[in-house]
Design a protein around this nucleic acid. Sequence first.
DNA 1: ATGTAATTGATAATGATTATCAAAATCAGG
DNA 2: CCTGATTTTGATAATCATTATCAATTACAT
Lengths: 143, 143
Amino acid sequence: MVWKTISKKLDENEYRLTPQREVILQVMIDNRGKHLSADEVYIEARGKSSNIGIATVYRTLEKLASIDVLYKTIFEGGKYRYELSLGESHQHHHIICLQCGHISEVEEDLLHNLEIHLEKQGYKILDHELKFYGYCPQCNPKN
Amino acid sequence: MVWKTISKKLDENEYRLTPQREVILQVMIDNRGKHLSADEVYIEARGKSSNIGIATVYRTLEKLASIDVLYKTIFEGGKYRYELSLGESHQHHHIICLQCGHISEVEEDLLHNLEIHLEKQGYKILDHELKFYGYCPQCNPKN
DNA sequence: ATGTAATTGATAATGATTATCAAAATCAGG
DNA sequence: CCTGATTTTGATAATCATTATCAATTACAT
């Protein structure tokens, strides 16, 4: 199901699925919903196939992001993170826990109205990204 | 007016206003509303006082951000950017033009409802950050 | 004045990412 | 299947932003 959608995108972009790329993709699928940095992907990929190079990881993540198989973003902390992009357009709403660092997602897409508002002002909005900073339910002192 | 508020914060935090720090602050005030990277601040600061070191710029920006005189964030592009933080709490709504790179701000604070919603789920939200990507009125092909 | 503490600027060290390049893998046509 | 051309890979060098180090300067409190 997930693989089918992805393969299609790879084909469309004439991007060959080598063993290394397959391992990296599998890592991303296994971690669906998480936001992995390149070195985190590298470590997990090594577990599956011990002789994969860090350069290949960077290259592959970059390429997969450019064809929208992955979504690439950067959080406070200064390194890029990647997550599987699941076809649907607006899903980039993150809640970052300042205590444990856990990053979860908000499903709602409540920004549509605001985008309309901005377009009336002459902007053309293509995408948005929303980040909340605070404590997740586990870390919330009140809970 | 701006200076008064800032001096107060500096005093409260026992942060001395040396000539170098004053120059850096002046650069930030001159560029109110813009989002400068450390090296951009460095270049402008050099124009005003030719023998300021890059290390001092980094140190000062970092410190000023930690006492909320500046707001520090990171955009696609991988480097930190700083802007003057003007007392009011929620103002971190940015519109990034994909054409010219210009970053402007949305004044509205329409996320309050969403925050309430998340708090009902057990989260404790302390801050948020919203970024729109698209074309500004000048670059919008439709205009 | 004078000794102590804070600040500075140059530069080394670090961490993340990108570029380079020779070797290995893969492909397409005979 | 061969074989030459093309793509991909992994190691590593290069780069870029940021942070740490440290001796020299500056400011402070007595």
